[in-house]
Simulated assay, not measured.
Amino acid sequence: MTTIPPNVARRLHKPFLLWGVLCLCLGFVMYMTGVLLIFPRYLLGLEALLDPIAQWLVWYSGMPIVAGLALAMFDLLFLLPGKKPDVPVRFQPVKRRRVTVALTAYNDEESIAGAVEDFLVHPLVERVIVVSNNSSDATFARAEEAGAIVFTEWQPGYGRCVHRSLTEAAKYTDTEFVVLCEGDSTFRAYDIEKLLAYAPHADIVNGTRTVEPLRQYLTQLSTFIYYGNMFVGKLLEAKHLGRSTITDVGTTYKLCRRDALLRLLPQLNPAVNLEFNAHLLDTALDRGLVLLECPITFHPRIGVSKGGNVNNWRGLQVGARMILGLLTDWRLARA
């Protein structure tokens, strides 16, 4: 394999593979659109109108396909050796196996008490924090009654709620780790054991919901959202080629080292809304933090979903904004 000096590769540390994959997708969409125009052409008798369009699409679809292949091969064959960190596998032992759990919540009065109790009884949990994103129901009271330390984040938006949750949890110096999760009972406290098993090797251990035997039959992840989430995860992996393996950008269950979190929080934009988890992972990798994935269980939520998994259309919108964020380094992020 032909290589270039690492110092040259660092200067060319651009996400060519990411751009290449998107170019390939554009070319494929153009080609398939041109081919499928055969149906309205003949069924509606629009040959004169649609034939030139179909020919143009099929013919010129080769341009983004060739460009995408060139960008991808350049990144994989030439730049990858300089992008992949040449460092030993990290092993930083866990000094104290205790965590602070931070749960985000928005109108989750049906589920929040059970979620808090589930985490509080776990032997490795020091405390549970709940941040209610200005809920209009009894979420705050239910969480407090269940034993959580409760805060209200008055500014609306999932990103603001997560940022506040991590900020409050990181203030506790007696725990080395912060576990971020949701209060809708889609995740379980027993997975903390697995997250901690990966902790010596990473700054952030991101839970992945893509392992089929660990995902219940009926969850918020439709087939479209399931594979769309994996696709965006692979785009993020392509952007940071050689740095991580990513299959789930939408999961809200993750473990963070407190010292890494303190460095990361000032770099995050709380105005990013439902795409905030992708923003967090992208920013962490951009700042040189080590990110690992850990298979976790995923369960049906209690109550009504308010996030990006409401339906396939909402999932498509959130996924598109995630891709835009990856391409623009979140400069176009909006609440």
Rank of each mutant, 00 (worst) to 15 (best):
Q55L: 12
M73P: 00
L22T: 08
L18D: 04
Y31V: 02
R96F: 02
E117S: 14
L36T: 02
K83T: 00
L124P: 00
G114R: 14
P64R: 11
D75Y: 02
M30H: 03
V87P: 01
E117R: 15
S61D: 08
L76T: 01
R41W: 00
R41T: 04
A70W: 05
F119K: 10
D51F: 06
M30Q: 12
V99R: 03
W59A: 15
L120A: 09
L71G: 09
A102D: 04
K84D: 01
F119W: 11
L103Q: 07
K95L: 12
L43H: 01
P85I: 05
P52K: 09
G114P: 02
C23W: 07
F74Y: 13
V116W: 08
L43C: 02
S111T: 03
I38H: 09
L18C: 05
H122Q: 10
G62H: 08
V87R: 12
A115H: 02
K95Y: 02
L36A: 11
W59K: 15
G62K: 06
L43F: 03
Y106W: 14
L69C: 12
F74M: 13
M63C: 07
R98A: 14
L71I: 07
P88Q: 05
V66Q: 11
F119E: 05
Q55W: 06
V29S: 14
C25Q: 12
V125P: 11
H122W: 10
W19F: 15
I65T: 14
V35G: 01
L18M: 14
P40T: 01
V66K: 11
I38V: 13
T100A: 14
V121Q: 15
V87T: 13
S111P: 02
T100F: 03
R98F: 05
L36P: 00
L80H: 10
N107S: 06
G45K: 01
P85R: 05
I38D: 08
L24T: 06
G27A: 08
V131G: 13
L37N: 08
E117N: 07
V116Q: 09
D51R: 05
L69R: 00
L79N: 09
G62T: 06
